[in-house]
Amino acid sequence: MDILDILLSASFWAAAIRIASPLIFATLGELICERAGVLNLGIEGIMVAGAFSGWIAVWAGLPLWGGVAVAMLTGMAFGLLHATLSVPFGLSQHVVGIGLTLLATSLTFYTYRVVLPEVSSPPKIEAFQPYEIPLLADLPLIGPALFSQTPLTYAAFLLAAICAYTLYRTPVGLAVRAAGENPSAVAAQGLSVTAIRMGAVITGSGFMAVGGAFLTLSAFDSFFFDMVNGRGWICIALVVFGAWRPGKAVLGAILFAAFDALQIRLQQTAIGALVPYQLFLMLPYILSILALVVMSRRAEVPAALMVPFNKGER
């Protein structure tokens, strides 16, 4: 199959949107944390915990949306831990984040082994099914790509719109952005920088966990240990690539997912037979580094990112 044929097929774009969905959730989550001034490196572990907790809740009998809620709450709990250590205590966000990823991952694997001690392969659940939006799904190319997805994908795009609106059009969003740019000014307004930043980290961590849950509840129907496989770190690169803006971050996630979908299809072509498959699997990571390099020259980083705020201190 020719590359052009691939790029013009509806199934390719449907796959791209599907691959982008968990990245959109997690990237938005990371973006909210960073906009408030906190780098959340717990993202990888929180996604693992979200993927597992959502799936195990559904396996135990909860409806699918109940699983999403459980994942979100799990993520928020880890977010509370991160926020407590990194905001009022002002501990190194690098160390706290890496520690949280290690903790969330090992707690997840431990719980898996405790709940399912004997299984050789994880049980399957009834995952989200695609829902065709009436009329829109009949459009050529766009219909199957955009409007025949699972409800959780629609939720991802809805969330992006809500995030963009909240960040730029509401007082809450202004407070979050100001906490990441100029926390002293926020404090001078009588607002609590600590509360704003903690709220942002907790909310953002909840979204990251839903991104993880997308993998088990929508993309697949089961949980595997190496399921998240660096997607969290890729999302951190996507936040930079999207210049800390929700709209651009979503576009970045789709572009990135399109490359990912393309490499999967290229593996099955004549080129794929010549090139070792590991090179294709490397592409997402290489692409993320390239994205960071390309965007490095633009100074749009929130000014107070990674700077702890201690009231009364200059």
Binding site: G230, W233, I234, I236, M282, Y285, I286, I289, S296, R297
Partner: peptide, 24 residues
């Protein structure tokens, strides 16, 4: 070098290198 020349955060690049090198 990416850190000193271009200001690219080394946390993410070194993390991503782990995945790339393991595939290599």
């Amino acid at each position: 070098l990416l850190k000193t020349r271009l200001g690219v955060d080394e946390v993410v690049t070194t993390l991503l290198f782990n995945f790339i090198f393991l595939l290599f």
